[in-house]
Design a protein around this nucleic acid. Structure first.
Lengths: 224, 224
DNA sequence: ATTGATTCTAAAGAAATTCTAAAGAATTGA
DNA sequence: TCAATTCTTTAGAATTTCTTTAGAATCAAT
């Protein structure tokens, strides 16, 4: 679950990142219009929290970029002005929700969670393969109705593999997905290896099969 | 897949080389106009990333050199934020894409991959010949839908042959393509021979045919 | 604070790939 | 034909990449 915060106030953006990353979201920041534009055009986010007053542009203009790129991205608008017209323009352009500054993080959280629920509930009730079932709402994983306890990283990893089934997933893109900005190219893949090991073990303990193949020098491939 | 980075900022060029070589590309650097010119006139690259502001010349002037030499080379221009006219001239002269500095490596990556896809598949999803199929996205090779596990060198070698089908490929250009700068003219071709052997074996094991003919004293020729 | 769970680091060992070297086969041209 | 050159093949050494383990650091909840 990847969020992007577009906001120029350093204190607020830090607070949001802190709060949501500690609540299990993978977070990225964009502190200006131009940064936001570049990120939006090159990545997919599940939800984007968008301040509409930015030093180098009007946040609302980003909404069309977002919608062009991915119809499924949730958009929450933040505005200092409690102006009805901004709100309406934003919602008309395709924002999903609106919040007036100042606000409590808990309120933003409630809205993001609601949006997340709407998004995940919409198409995908449960993801099933063989005797496995993934419930994206409760973030749980089952084998024959028996729950397999996964940690957050393991769950995110599995979901990424399932979404990219039958495709070779490079370690870099896996790491980028799991750690976002915070994974840097010079880091080694030690932690990726460890999480892989643990995830594989849990899956094969339950089913006896190994669904994730290693593609030497390329990455991993999940098939079912 | 061979890239050339033309860029005079040492930090940036190192970052780019790091990033892309760890993502499976073969990379070379040119830190000045003159070096770039020399390389472009003597080697072929799949994609050239070209900073247009260089200490000893204007990068745009290289575009015509590149186009004269090889119509198929992808060109991505890097430019400072304000110089719109440069970008337009570049695109008019035959660049394929441009990127404004500063940028995220991931963005450059997205564009290079897009260009690569456009180049290698030109519309079609996969490259096919006889009962073989190459999927350039996941870098896999199939015979009758059965995957043939190739190592990276074998895969790059095969792709080079397929791209140059019906043409005699010299060992030098093959080595040049596979090892770039790191292959030096005094090296012998022992490893080329070994990889050839292994690639041929895998192909003929699957199909019973030998697609790669030896042209004594010249090189190899791939036909189908 | 203490506990327990998760995540990360580091290092050793395994496995796959890549390269080296050397011997033998094929091709060329004198 | 035969020497020189070029290419093929093989075996194994070196290197790179991946797995596994154990324990340290971090985080979360009591």
């Amino acid at each position: 679950m990847k969020l992007l915060f577009v906001e120029d106030e350093p204190v607020l953006i830090e607070e949001m990142e802190n709060y949501f990353s500690s609540h299990g979201f993978i977070c990225e920041q964009a502190t200006s219009f131009s940064i936001a534009e570049e990120k939006i055009n090159n990545y997919n986010y599940d939800i984007i929290v968008l301040d509409i007053t930015l030093p180098d542009g009007v946040g609302i203009d980003l909404i069309t970029d977002i919608r062009e790129r991915n119809l499924d991205t949730g958009i929450v608008i933040l505005s200092a002005r409690n102006s009805l017209s901004d709100k309406l323009t934003g919602l008309n352009l395709g924002a999903d929700d609106y919040l007036t500054k100042p606000f409590f993080l808990e309120e933003l959280s409630a809205r993001i969670n609601a949006l997340y629920r709407r998004k995940t509930l919409k198409g995908a009730e449960n993801i099933c393969f063989d005797d496995f079932k993934i419930d994206p709402v409760s973030k749980r994983f089952f084998f024959n109705e028996e729950q397999i306890g996964l940690t957050r990283k393991e769950y995110e990893m599995l979901l990424f593999f399932v979404v990219n089934k039958n495709r070779v997933v490079s370690k870099s893109s896996l790491a980028e997905h799991l750690w976002g900005d915070h994974f840097d190219q010079n880091d080694n893949f030690d932690t990726v290896y460890v999480h892989m090991k643990n995830l594989r073990k849990k899956i094969s303990c339950a089913s006896g099969k190994d669904y994730i193949k290693t593609v030497y020098g390329m990455g991993y491939k999940f098939t079912f």
